[in-house]
Amino acid sequence: MSTVFIALQANEETRPIIEAIEIDNPLAVVNRQPAMVKIDAPNRLVIRKETIEEQIGREFDLQELHINLITLGGNVTEDDDSLTLSWAE
């Protein structure tokens, strides 16, 4: 098992995104550090557009993530509906 992760700035825009990530990834662990939030997950983490939209109550383009993204670890796969981080098992 390897850990994938994504780190986002801690702010009002990312709060619902982090909640969406927690909903979609029950194994994810959220670490809150000064000014940032780092989310770790075993092997795979998925970020879904639809879940984020339910949290924020408006349309969300997944590329908006770039604005508050700090760093990530894992191979990235992105399409219109989701962004997945993974390591080969």
Binding site: A7, Q9, Q33, P34, A35, M36, H66, I67, N68, L69, I70, T71, L72
Partner: peptide, 29 residues
């Protein structure tokens, strides 16, 4: 960038946190 900039936040340095994280958002790409 990551622990050091988080450290900048911890030390009250908003200017550095901001350029640090603004730069780091590009680093992911």
């Amino acid at each position: 960038f990551v622990p050091f900039m988080s450290g900048a936040a911890y030390n009250g340095d908003m200017a550095t946190v901001t350029f640090g994280f603004s730069a780091q958002s590009d680093e992911a790409r």
